[in-house]
Lab assay of single mutants.
Amino acid sequence: MDTYKLILNGKTLKGETTTEAVDAATAEKVFKHAANEHGVHGHWTYDPETKTFTVTE
């Protein structure tokens, strides 16, 4: 398992979190669910070198 990071750049919610996942696709599902639960919808990017997802509203 690897550690993946999410950076939230929402209009009303900003922050960072991490998750352990077997691959980037699994981490993305976890992060998108969490972002949706917090009402953050926007443009997603992924940097494979740093294993970091970013969502920007």
Rank of each mutant, 00 (worst) to 15 (best):
E16F: 14
I7K: 05
T50D: 05
E28L: 15
E49R: 09
E49S: 13
K51Q: 05
T26V: 07
A35G: 03
E49L: 12
K51Y: 07
M1I: 10
T45I: 08
L6T: 02
V22K: 12
L13R: 08
A34R: 13
T19W: 07
A25Q: 11
A24Q: 09
L8Q: 02
Y4C: 03
E16Q: 10
A21N: 02
L6C: 12
K14T: 10
A24K: 11
L6M: 06
I7L: 05
G10T: 14
A27G: 01
H43G: 06
L8R: 00
T17I: 15
N36R: 14
T26A: 14
I7W: 04
F31T: 00
F53S: 00
V30Y: 14
N9L: 14
Y4D: 03
L13M: 14
D2G: 08
G10K: 04
E57I: 08
G15T: 15
D23Q: 02
G39V: 05
V22L: 12
D23P: 00
A35D: 01
L13Y: 15
T17P: 03
D2I: 13
D2R: 09
F53M: 01
T54P: 00
N9P: 04
T56S: 08
T18N: 05
G42L: 04
D23V: 02
T17S: 11
H33Y: 09
N36T: 10
T52S: 05
D23F: 02
E28F: 15
G10Q: 04
T12N: 13
V22H: 10
K11V: 14
T3S: 07
T52P: 00
T18I: 09
T26W: 07
K11T: 13
T54D: 03
A24H: 08
E37H: 11
L13Q: 09
E57S: 06
H43S: 12
N9M: 12
N9H: 09
T54V: 07
H43Q: 13
K32R: 15
G15Q: 12
T12S: 11
T50H: 07
V40R: 02
K32A: 07
G42K: 02
H33T: 12
T19P: 01
G10P: 03
E16H: 10
M1E: 08
L8F: 12
G15L: 15
N36G: 10
I7M: 05
V22D: 07
T56E: 08
E37A: 13
T54S: 05
A27Q: 00
A27V: 02
K51S: 03
T26H: 12
H38L: 15
G15Y: 15
V22N: 09
H41A: 10
M1W: 12
N36Y: 13
F31M: 02
T19S: 04
T54N: 04
T17E: 11
D23G: 03
H43V: 14
G15K: 14
P48R: 06
T18Y: 14
K32H: 08
K32D: 02
A34K: 13
G42V: 02
K51F: 08
H38P: 02
T50K: 07
